Computed example of a mutant assay.
Amino acid sequence: MKAKALLLLFSVCLTVSAAAQRLVTFQGKAQGTYYIVKYLGEDSTSLQPDVESIFREIDRSLSLYLPSSLINRFNKGQQVVMDDYMRTVVKKAQEVSRLTNGLFDITVKPLVDLWGFGVVRHSKGQPSAANIRKTLQLVGYRLLTVRSRYLIKKKAGVEIDCNGIAQGFTSDVVGSFLLSRGIRNFLVDVGGELVASGVNAQGQPWSVGIERPSSGKDSLQQGPMQAILRLKNRAVATSGNYRRFFDEGGTRFAHTIHPRTGQAVHNNIITVTVTAPDAITADAYDNAMILLGVDQGLAFIARNPKLQLGAYYVYKDDDGQVKEKYSPGFFATE
């Protein structure tokens, strides 16, 4: 009983302490998208300049839009000495590639470019089968070697694209910065990839809205409802096939490219939202979950409980009805 009483007292004190702090919010644009930072603190000094400095540092490492970035130097050459940002991202990417048998693969860049979804956008339509086969020879996570701090490509022409993981990583880095400043209660959102720590100003888990289908066909185009996900010491990322795509011959080709077949995704999935202990993990696996599909994706999560993943799918069934399906415990607080 004493232990329970002490736990209850601690919980009450934590809630009162969080509620006594001021909610600080700032936002802006970075990495080609938006960012929002919310935290509870007592210091009135703005941390926005420090956070934007972090964005610039990560861009110098991982941005494909910055000609002098480390990733562009690697793509143009044979090897680079990785900084801490690139080393962390490449290590996580290779780990996820191994566990998903190459469904997530940062060497997919030549295929992304071929389909017109890269830095230089084009709408030339579906590439020829011959061009896809040729480009596939430059794709495969095993074509990368990490030796000490060096990232080395085994074949000329191999290029990497970390956009499928970088924004989640950035959210984690900003979160770590806030922790280093003694801030324990925060929510960081970089382009929809979020990491939450502690509680909000009401002493409750942070509330995040995710797209949820209403009944009927094409209901998302009529205005999605919101499912409320409550996050505490957890991260979430969403990937979808309804914003970047082109239509050809009655088929919609989305920007998600299958690294093993070279094909742009044209399955029945509208969005998938993934939860994980950190945003870099959630961001990497949301790509793989789209390629796995609803049933195989949920089965993967069930087979790998140590990853602590959750997934929420919005998809169309064979009749064109918008449906939802999610893993057990997806809406759990932690």
Rank of each mutant, 00 (worst) to 15 (best):
G320S: 02
S197Y: 11
A264H: 05
Q226V: 13
A235M: 06
I269D: 00
Y65I: 02
Y315P: 03
F26D: 15
N101F: 12
V80F: 13
R133P: 07
A311F: 10
A302K: 13
R181L: 09
V16E: 05
Q296P: 11
D278V: 08
L307D: 01
S207I: 10
I165N: 01
R260F: 02
V89K: 05
S148I: 07
E248Y: 07
I183P: 00
L111F: 03
V322N: 05
L194M: 14
S176Q: 14
L187R: 13
G209S: 13
F331N: 09
T275Y: 03
S61V: 08
E95N: 09
L307Y: 04
K323Y: 03
I269S: 06
A332S: 12
I183C: 11
E334D: 10
A93H: 08
A166G: 10
G203L: 07
T275M: 10
T261S: 11
S68A: 14
I257L: 05
R142T: 14
L64P: 15
N287L: 06
Y285M: 09
F169G: 06
T333F: 10
T170D: 01
G164V: 01
G168A: 00
L6K: 15
G198H: 07
V139K: 12
K124D: 12
F26M: 15
A282S: 14
V190P: 13
G164S: 02
S176P: 13
V294R: 11
N304S: 08
I269R: 05
Y312N: 04
G329I: 06
F55H: 12
Y315F: 10
K323F: 01
T107W: 00
